[in-house]
Design a protein around this nucleic acid. Structure first.
Lengths: 236, 236
DNA sequence: TTATTGACATTGTCCGACAATGAGCGAGGC
DNA sequence: GCCTCGCTCATTGTCGGACAATGTCAATAA
């Protein structure tokens, strides 16, 4: 079966065939994440299209994180293209209280994620959750910047669900939140008060107590939302 | 405040300035959804960039549904660009049971949406939900293709939440599902058995009984998932 | 051995040209 | 008068070529 990748609405089939051809080429070449793609001129020649058309496809792939383009250096594959890969580009209008809106969407997703993780996680995933939680606690107690560790911890939970969609969607929502939120306000350590709750959350997930884990996650999100709301009110 | 729109990962700031300029131009021109944008050549000239660079931005906007491009005719604005619009590009790897994965993500979102709708919906939104439900029932009882009416009904619920993110994300997930699912199998009327449940669902939402509405929504999704699983098994 | 520097490769951007296609307008028939 | 058909034109889609910007890597000198 020939892999196919579409980044397009049903109406906008721009570059449909070029994408398919490029996926087939990458697949035939056996390229893996980290490998460099052939130069654009060669790709265009081998696919029988102009460089502009090829570039539009590569640009679209770069936007969704499939490839990474580096001027001067080449284009490297950043994500595997196995089987069928589908891109869901969606435009979100962020208005006044839009930051809280991203949280409103994240809440059910995060809670469902910890439920699924508690229910379905493999033993190795449970170990990883514990390890990430301990990392987070060490950094937090040491007074350092715990945001990266926090993301790693939650990413471990998302990975444990076995459904990559959770991690991707939540990650994009968080990135949108950070981009809009962190820039205007300084946002040093939003939600520090939630960190201690991560230990019982992790323990509940690892022990398979889904309801308890969901409850802790809900409390964490509640505090996060309250903190975000407070900061927004203070800066109004 | 100058509106800004970014469709890019933090690393891939391709066309960042052109996007900002185009947003400012659209905003200054007072263009609304349905209006036609100036031709590409004029846009490129007014923004002081080449047509190819402008086209990359327009292509990205077309992919996320902000504009609609029509060869021969022009480019029309499809979505409003008010305040900050942020794009969330997602690349999803669709493997064997990937269709069920989209459902797994949709479930918590849909359930949360009906909860919020039952709690917060404005009276006009509640009326619209009832109207869409009645439309759906008429078409279903008449034996016609009820899929469009079904989408309209759920869209009314998403709109009633007051949070456009729900409708957008769920809509994209559904589109991904349809694109992958409808093509290989015929997918005549997947989930017909769930339609009768839409009446009590709508009544619960309109009456503000959030828990009951969430329960009906969960049952609908459960049946949908079972139907999808059955069809997949049958075609294996 | 290490730092520097230069040639080279590769992506980013621009310009121009032509093809493909849809919209709008006018001529002609009823 | 009104409708239909066909033509012209505007607009997007695609291609080719060229140059700029920049990272990589090897050759060279201290």
């Amino acid at each position: 079966m020939v892999a196919s990748l579409h980044i397009a609405s049903p109406e906008t089939r721009v570059g449909h065939d070029v994408m398919d051809g490029l996926v087939a080429l990458v697949s035939a070449e056996g390229l893996k994440p980290g490998d460099r793609l052939p130069p654009e001129t060669e790709l265009a020649r081998r696919l029988g299209v102009g460089r502009h058309r090829l570039r539009e496809v590569l640009t679209a792939w770069a936007r969704v994180g499939i490839v990474s383009r580096n001027k001067g250096a080449g284009t490297v594959l950043a994500a595997p293209i196995t089987g069928r890969t589908l891109a869901l580009p969606l435009a979100v209008t962020l208005e006044a209280e839009s930051l809280l809106r991203t949280l409103a969407v994240r809440r059910p997703l995060e809670i469902e994620a910890v439920r699924l993780a508690a229910r379905d996680a493999a033993p190795t995933s449970r170990d990883r959750i514990t390890a990430r939680m301990l990392d987070l606690m060490v950094i937090f107690d040491g007074g350092g910047d715990w945001r990266a560790a926090d993301r790693a911890f939650h990413a471990a939970i998302h990975e444990a669900t076995g459904n990559p969609l959770f991690g991707q969607i939540i990650g994009q929502l968080q990135r949108a939140f950070d981009e809009v939120y962190a820039t205007p306000f300084g946002m040093p350590q939003l939600g520090s008060s939630t960190i201690p709750m991560h230990r019982p959350l992790a323990e509940a997930v690892v022990a398979g107590r889904a309801d308890e884990a969901a409850d802790w996650m809900a409390r964490i999100l509640e505090d996060t939302e309250a903190a975000a709301r407070a900061v927004m009110e203070g800066h109004r």
